[in-house]
Amino acid sequence: MEVFLIGLIAATLRVATPLILGTLGELFAERAGILNLGIEGTMFCGAFVGFVVGGATGNLWLGVLAAIVAGILAGLLMGLLSVRLGVSQHVSGLGITLLLTGLSLFGFRLIFGEPRIPPSIAPFERLPILSQVPILGEILGQYALTYIALALVPVCWWMLYRTNFGLQIRAVGENPEAADAAGVNVFLTRYLALAIAGGLMAAGGAFLSLAQLGAFTYGIIAGRGWVCIALIIFGNWQPVRVLWGALLFGGVSALQLRLQTTGLDLPYEMFLALPYLVTIAALAVAGRNATYPAALLKAYKRE
């Protein structure tokens, strides 16, 4: 039982890492009033760019950095469309997801052709010193990126609630007219929030290709971006509650992996679908109490 629990907790943290990064990113965007459905594509693109640059340079951190830069560019593109031009956020976000997915696949074909087995690299190693701690070693010996993701939760909370910049982000997400009247540059603030958001999302994707898998596959994101969007509603746009949501999803995912091997006579696809169904159920429970940022989905026009 102890071994089971320790393994479960360790896996939960691992599975939750890309979700934590993705949700923190989406949180910045949504608190600034922009629903960024480009998240799925941005994570995919981050996984691809991170994998290519990490593999080509042999420096995995350079890969993460490159992914973040790509994510920032994706965020700025979302800004150009939804902030500057005032295009529907739903459609521009989905368009960006389709564009980045297409671009990544195009690049993948160009570089790797049509390999029968997905190309792989030597991935990040888990922190070696912490892995040797007795009993808890498996839990503590995570990837550095997992620790960074966990540390980013209080950092993002602090940024959003304790800094002037965070106040501006929340202000343009709640009432851009008032923020503008108070001298906040609504457009600039939204652009910056989207850039931060894109960088975080892409880092989440890079974690998958550079740490968890050490490979790039077509199905590498598999709807995780959409899960992030659900987790934010579930967490009511609060960084810490969103973290619990990510851990819950990670926990259910880790649990289903273990249930598959216990010999229960159920199709494994049922377990794979379980985290998604739990998320939908959680949304149904959270539904009515969700307090959306008041200006979410509304383009701001300055006359």
């Binding site: 598999a222 959409w226 679908a273 998604y276 939908i280 949304l283």
Partner: peptide, 23 residues
């Protein structure tokens, strides 16, 4: 869910796209 509980349909329809692939 949208009509009865005001749950955002964007997220739920997207999540169900993933679910049916498992089916």
């Amino acid at each position: 869910l949208k009509v009865k509980l005001a749950v955002d349909e964007v997220v739920t329809t997207l999540l169900l796209n993933s679910v049916i692939l498992f089916v």
